[in-house]
Simulated assay, not measured.
Amino acid sequence: HAWVRATAPGQKVAGAFMEITADRDMELVAGTTPRADHVELHFMRMDDGVMEMRELESIKLPKGETVSLKPGGLHAMLIGLTSQVVAGEKVPMTLTFRDSQGKQENVGITLDTASPRH
């Protein structure tokens, strides 16, 4: 269930969304994609009609619980897009996870591209 929103020509950022269920207590600590200069983990919410967004160092993934990265909440932000993300294309991404012992693991995923209205 991993996807990224298509972008307008010249747009330099895009949100990536997914559901993650870890088989042990872990944290999502980073992401990379050849389609952007870098990836940041973000938290977003509306507070009294004002959008608040901030970068996170990590996203906790408790064992067996599904954590949703979705519009209006936790998400990954692709920053410095190298080209327009077009609806229907696939975007490769690598996620970096860290377990409670500090061991890191990289997992490659493919983001489906949804229309800007998704």
Rank of each mutant, 00 (worst) to 15 (best):
T7Q: 02
P9F: 04
Q11R: 07
Q11Y: 08
A16G: 11
F17E: 08
F17C: 06
F17T: 03
E19F: 02
I20Q: 03
E27W: 13
G31R: 01
G31P: 00
A36Y: 05
D37A: 15
H38C: 07
V39C: 10
E40L: 14
H42R: 15
F43A: 09
F43P: 00
M44S: 15
R45P: 02
D47S: 13
D47N: 12
D48L: 11
G49L: 09
G49S: 07
V50K: 15
M51I: 10
M51W: 02
E52G: 05
R54S: 08
E55A: 13
E55T: 15
E55F: 04
L56G: 03
E57G: 12
E57P: 13
S58C: 09
I59N: 00
L61N: 02
K63P: 01
K63Y: 08
G64P: 06
T66P: 02
T66E: 06
S68D: 12
L69C: 11
G73N: 14
H75L: 14
I79S: 11
I79Q: 05
L81M: 05
S83F: 03
V86K: 14
E89M: 10
K90G: 06
K90E: 13
T94P: 01
G102A: 11
T110I: 13
L111C: 01
T113K: 01
T113W: 05
T113L: 03
T113N: 03
S115G: 13
P116N: 06
